[in-house]
Structures are given as C-alpha cells and as structure tokens.
C-alpha cells in the first residue's frame, strides 16, 4: 500500500533497466519498497538489475521481458507484470523510450515509425491497461517519464520529441480520466539527462543526472505534483521557449 507520504511498498517499472528507473528504484527500495517487477527488453540486464535490488533489500524481485515495438501485446505484458507483483502494485513507472537515430540527410521513415511506436504507441496502450488495473485495485500511482523535448519539439530530434509530446498529452488526459478513482498520474519532464540513452550526445544546458531525476520524482509523488519538471526551474525556461518566434527557435543551437 501507499503510505501517508505516497511512498510505495511495491513498484513495477516498464523499461526497468533505464538509468532513471534504476536510480528511482534504488531510492524506493532504500525506503520501504519490498516488491519490485522489472520489465524490459534485455533479459540479462534485467536480471542483473534485479540482483542488485535484491541485495539492496527488496524481498521479491521479478523480471518480465517484452518487445516495445509490438503495442498489440502491451495489455498482456501489463497483466503478466501485475501477476508477477502478486496481483497489485502501488507504483507503476513508464520508462519505455528511445531516441531517434542521428541523421545526416533526411528522415528515415522506418526509424520514425519505430520511434513513434516505442515512445508513444506501446506506452499509451500499456498506460491504458495499467490505469484500468489500478482503478480496479482502488489505489495507485502512475509515473510517466516524458521529456522537455516534447514541450516544444526541436528540429534536432523531432521524431522523438513529437512522440514524447504525444505520450505527455496522453498521460495528462489520463490523469483527468482517472481523477477520483484513487489513482493518480504524474508526468515527469526532465531536461537533458546524462544516461545510457544520451551517451555520446552533447549535453544541453541544465543537464541533470538520473539520481537527480529520481529524487525529484520521489518529492513530486510526495507532494502529489501532476507535472514534475527536472530541474524545477525548466518550467519557467519553457514558458519563454514556447513564446519564441519560429525564426529564432530554428536558430537555437542543437
């Protein structure tokens, strides 16, 4: 169950080997989370992450593999994950996502399709399934890792940004949909995060570490914040960004 501060005793992470997910779970297990389900693509890495969490004090850690390019399976994957958690879960984290390929000339339609599927179609289907299960259990929190890339989509990575914008909007609408059902949805909008996903890319200003994102998410859940910006002042930076005329926006350094 969630306690008075929204701290979970059980957590499910879809995209369980992402650096942000790893940092968040580390903090949750150090607190009072004892049941963890990690779902992801790579079985070996999932098992390694599960072993670390078990060492850190989790009493039940299960892993589930899935393929995020197949949104039609999302409902079944979610059901499997919940079963692995013992039927119920206090906190579900949606951390599925990938960046688009760096491009030299033109867009690759196949890559655009894959990015849209992995960042939007699969997470949206899974969130719909999760919300249904959590509403039925009468309590729960859903955290969706979005990105500032979706707040105003930049030319540099717009297939990714556009898909993130989609899942961000979907999650916020879902938050309204489930209001009053005992379930809440929190959207996390980090800036540039130093992680596996962004390795080799040039860091944007105000870059943060996965641990900082994890701490912000924990505080955001505690305070029941609907949108969690990391770092917090990006909220105000993007008020300005949204107002920039397109001619200036295009010229911003990538």
């Amino acid at each position: 169950m969630l306690d008075a501060f929204g701290h979970p005793q059980s957590a499910l992470v879809l995209g369980g080997t992402s650096d942000i997910a790893t940092a968040l779970l580390g903090a949750l297990v150090a607190d009072r989370c004892r049941t963890v389900v990690l779902a992801g693509r790579d079985d070996g890495r999932l098992r390694a992450a599960a072993a670390r969490l078990a060492d850190a004090g989790a009493t039940s850690v299960e892993t589930v593999t899935f393929d995020a390019t197949r949104p039609e399976d999302a409902d079944r994957v979610v059901a499997r994950c919940l079963a692995a958690a013992g039927g119920q879960v206090d906190l579900a984290v949606m951390a599925v996502g990938r960046l688009d390929q760096p491009r030299r000339d033109g867009l690759d339609p196949a890559d655009v399709a894959a990015v849209a599927t992995v960042n939007f179609a699969w997470p949206a289907a899974a969130l719909a399934s999760l919300a249904g299960h959590l509403c039925e259990q009468g309590q729960g929190r859903i955290v969706v890792l979005s990105s500032v890339a979706g707040v105003r989509v930049r030319p540099a990575n717009f297939p990714y940004g556009a898909a993130k914008r989609g899942i961000d909007a979907f999650a916020l609408a879902l938050a309204d949909e489930v209001a009053g059902s005992g379930v809440s949805v929190h959207v996390v909008r980090p800036g540039f995060v130093h992680s596996k996903m962004t390795a080799g890319r040039r860091a944007a200003p105000f870059a943060v570490t996965p641990a900082e994102v994890a701490e912000a998410v924990r505080r955001g859940i505690e305070r029941d914040e609907r949108i969690i910006w990391v770092p917090g002042f990006l909220r105000w930076v993007f008020v300005g960004m949204r107002l920039l005329p397109p001619a200036l926006w295009r010229r911003l350094p990538a």
Binding site: S60, E62, A83, G86
Partner: peptide, 11 residues
C-alpha cells in the same frame, strides 16, 4: 512462498 508470480520471471 515466492508468490504466484514466481514462475513468470523472465518469461
């Protein structure tokens, strides 16, 4: 008991 999810690990 490892619980009902035990058999699903890494399925």
């Amino acid at each position: 008991d490892p619980g009902p999810g035990g058999g699903l690990a890494g399925a």
